[in-house]
Nucleic acid binder design. Structure first.
Length: 766
RNA sequence: GCGGGCGUGGUGAAAUUGGUAGACACGCGAGAUUUAGGUUCUCGUGCCGCAAGGCGUGGGGGUUCAAGUCCCUCCGCCCGCACCA
């Protein structure tokens, strides 16, 4: 009896596919195309189980579609710019490029050992000058077309390292390396004007029929369209130029309950006051230590400072409200100023109680006798409401009508206007880092910012840089930085900011269609291959990456790099769950010490001990595999031991693809045993030559029914992204075949048919 | 804090549209094969109960002839929050 030997079979066939370029995609107008793409990996060093899951799923689709007669494009590349390469450069005194390309070599080898049906001839890395040269060309076209602006934006500033920090590098308000308190700081930044396209990006979501509802909903909420009232409060005692404070509110119907006006610490009025009021300056400085993350701002204790300035209520000039600076008001949303209505907003109520501001009684009610609520009462938009304190003679039926009536009233009397507002902010792309695509712009004292001429592209990153000092090496690289102005020829300097890596990943899928073209895209290739028919990746990208890509394709269409039909690049989207594992830890000197799965042994009753020391190990939560908790299984070790097919089969079994899957040893063993079982079946079963006999008995008919029911179930499973159900059907068919021991020509025929179907149906998976 | 999702046996999960809850697999139990273990094969396995029977889809409430599925509410876990990729 033979055994399936993955260690021999897999490299053999992988080499054969490589040799024959079996998965090379060529344009062929005679055949329907299918473009399946998984989110390309960041070359962090080694592939992880999340990659295995992602690429195993994509490969099922690619091989399935190929088997159904489609001309399949299934490419792979590398999202290769980013911070980790610079961190590695600092830690190991290497060049980020060296580190990155070494990682790519390792990960390419590892991916190849998975037996994926990829067209490797199209491979590229975003840090290849050939790629970012084209990206710079796109930037120049988009700059000319008005999609890009230079404006102030807020960053995290580390005053010791003298560098800008990413939000994830700010830990408890301190820089991760220096430990110094981080400050919010404004800088001139390049930004894509994505908010100009907010309405189009929002309304087009309706047409993304094959995207998960949750992603469409998240994107809608992220764009966050609202209609409200914008109006000004006249100030008393404010510095010159601040005679009015403009506010935006989505609930103008609560205006009669206003008890204060709040402005952001970054509001122009707050800044004006800072200059000669030390209390204001101190308060604003404290607010700026909060960093830039919205979650941090929202979770922080709500604090405020009375500016001493007052404003008049628009409906009653004698009604004065105090102006407070409050740390929870975002400068980026609306006008950076609000009015607070404690009766109808919980946060405002908490704020008023804390600072002893007047709380006006509830003047909205659901019914006749609603008392003054202990908690703020938000008048529902869809239900019947009633104004208790009459609002200037208006009467309404629902909260929404109250809003509309108030806006109409304000417009009629000329003190405010109804406006549409979006939560979506412009996309700041400037990064004060070396390892990214240089922004192709030159700063000249007389001409201002001047685009680099297309003929001078690419603006290549200089190789001779060091990371032994804080800050961006480009800033101190005079040979690279100092250039003549393209316009006037005077001494000028290059822009030293590089592009956000999200730019790189916003069009790579289009580049895969013609990766060696001398222009960003080639229309013949784009017309044939775009759009991506199926895109697969983690749900953590549900908003930013996907939204930026949608924007970028619109901008590429407007600059003639894509057809209008590719404005929405991804026809169908699937978001997969994470790969998780148990965590193991021991206490050492009162501290938690995490252990890797290899350091832990489980006995029959499920208790865990540390290998070697035999101390008892506590089994913690099952969480996403991560280096910090050490609950990581290395795919390469699994592939060496069991083969890629076992790893792939396990990944596709049991757990629905959109849900998290827990990696377990038992599960891997089970997958391995099943593959052996199928191999054995082929050896053991008698199945003839497939000739159909004249008569077919009941047993053979039952087996044939099973075969065809499996064909239907497996097909539906793959089409519906329920690979676990396909796998279950394949188990059923395998069980039925193993039990079909009867002799006879009809049984030989039914077994032949069943085994053949089994092999074909398993082939996209293993 | 805000936005989104998830919760079904010991475990991963099935359950077209509101219509027999637990397909399939892991694990476990019993038996067979094997020098032994692994492997392989057969049978059993939601929970309580000797049984009859009862109870069961995170908790509570509701709609319905009928609820895992729809509605309300609470709890728990996970993802995102704009400079991680």
């Amino acid at each position: 009896m033979s055994r399936y030997n993955a260690r021999e079979a897999e490299p053999k066939w992988q080499a054969a596919w490589d040799e024959a370029e079996s998965f090379r995609a060529e344009r062929d107008p005679a055949r329907p195309k299918y473009y399946v793409l998984e989110m390309f990996p960041y070359p962090s060093g080694r592939i992880h189980m999340g990659h295995v899951r992602n690429y195993a799923m994509g490969d099922v689709i690619a091989r399935y579609k190929r088997a159904r007669g489609f001309n399949v494009l299934h490419p792979m590349g590398w999202d290769a710019f980013g911070m980790p390469a610079e961190n590695a450069a600092m830690a190991n005194n290497t060049h980020p490029g060296t580190w990155t390309y070494e990682n790519i070599a390792t990960m390419r080898r590892q991916l190849k050992s998975m037996g994926l049906s990829l067209d490797w001839t199209r491979e590229f890395a975003t840090c290849d000058p050939e790629y970012y040269a084209q990206q710079q060309a796109l930037f120049l076209d988009m700059l000319e077309a008005g999609f890009i602006a230079r404006r102030k934006a807020v960053v995290n500033w580390d005053p010791v390292d003298m560098t800008v920090l990413a939000n994830e590098q700010v830990i408890d308000g301190k820089g991760w390396r220096s430990g110094a308190p981080v400050e919010r700081q404004e800088r001139q930044q390049w930004a894509f004007k994505i908010s100009d396209m907010a309405d189009d990006l929002l309304s087009a979501i309706d047409d993304l029929k094959d995207w998960p509802d949750k992603v469409r909903l998240m994107q809608s909420n992220w764009i966050g369209k609202s209609r409200g009232l914008e109006f000004g409060f006249k100030t008393q005692g404010a510095p010159d130029g601040h005679g009015e404070v403009a506010v935006y509110t989505t609930r103008p119907d609560t205006l009669m309950g206003a008890s204060f006006v709040g402005i952001s610490p970054d509001h122009p009025l707050a800044k004006a006051l800072e200059a000669d009021n030390p209390d204001v300056a101190a308060f604003c400085a404290e607010c700026r230590r909060l960093g830039t993350s919205e979650a941090d701002l929202e979770k922080a204790e709500k604090k405020g400072l009375d500016t001493g300035i007052t404003v008049s209520h628009p409906l009653d000039p004698n009604w004065k409200l105090p102006v407070w600076i409050a740390n929870f008001i975002l400068m980026d949303y609306g006008t950076g100023a609000i009015f607070g209505c404690p009766a109808h907003d919980q946060r405002d109520l908490d704020f008023c109680r804390k600072y002893d501001l007047p709380v006006i009684d509830t003047f909205f009610a659901l019914d006749d006798d609603t008392p003054v609520a202990k908690d703020a009462f938000v008048p529902p938009k869809t239900e019947k409401v009633r104004w208790v304190n009459h609002f200037a003679g208006l009467d309404v039926a629902t909260g929404q009508e109250a809003i509309d009536a108030t806006i109409a009233f304000a417009e009629e009397h000329g003190w405010g206007k109804g406006v549409e507002n979006y939560r979506l902010r412009d996309w700041g792309i400037s990064r004060q880092r070396y390892w990214g695509a240089p922004i192709p712009v030159i700063h000249c004292e007389t001409c201002g910012t001047v685009p680099v001429a297309k003929a001078d592209l690419p603006v290549k990153l200089p190789e001779d840089v060091t990371f032994d000092r804080p800050g961006n090496p480009l800033d101190r690289h005079d040979a690279w930085r100092k250039v003549p102005c393209p316009k006037c020829g005077a001494d000028a300097t290059r822009e030293t900011d590089t592009m956000d890596t999200f730019v790189d990943s916003s069009w790579y899928f289009a580049r895969f269609c013609s990766p060696r073209a001398e222009t960003p895209t080639d229309s013949a290739d784009i017309d044939y291959w775009m759009n991506v028919d199926q895109y697969i990746g983690g749900v953590e990208h549900a908003i930013l990456h996907l939204l930026y890509s949608r924007f970028f394709c619109r901008a590429m269409a407007a600059t003639q790099h894509l057809p209008q039909s590719a404005r929405e690049p991804f026809n169908a989207l699937f978001t997969q769950g994470m790969v998780t594992h148990e965590t193991y830890s021991v206490k050492e000197d009162g501290k938690t010490l995490w252990l890797t799965p290899e350091e832990v042994q489980r006995d029959e009753s499920g208790n865990a001990t540390r290998i070697g020391s035999r101390e008892s190990v506590s089994i913690g939560a099952t969480t996403k595999m991560s280096k910090s908790k050490k609950n990581v299984i290395d795919p390469e070790a699994i592939i060496e031991q069991y083969g890629a097919d076992t790893a792939r089969w396990f990944m596709l079994s049991d757990s629905p693809p959109e849900r998290d899957v827990e990696w377990t040893n038992a599960g891997v063993e089970g997958a391995w045993r099943f593959l052996q079982r199928v191999w054995r079946l082929m050896d053991d079963l008698k199945y003839g030559d497939g000739a159909k006999p004249d008569s077919i008995g009941d047993s053979a008919t039952a087996l044939r029914r099973m075969t065809h029911s499996a064909i239907q179930g497996v097909t539906e499973g793959i089409e519906g992204f329920s690979f676990n159900k396909s796998v279950a059907k394949l188990y059923e068919l395998t069980n039925a075949l193993a039990k079909a021991k009867e002799t006879g020509a009809d049984m030989d025929f039914a077994r032949h048919e069943g085994l053949r179907a089994l092999c074909i149906m398993m082939s996209p998976m293993v």
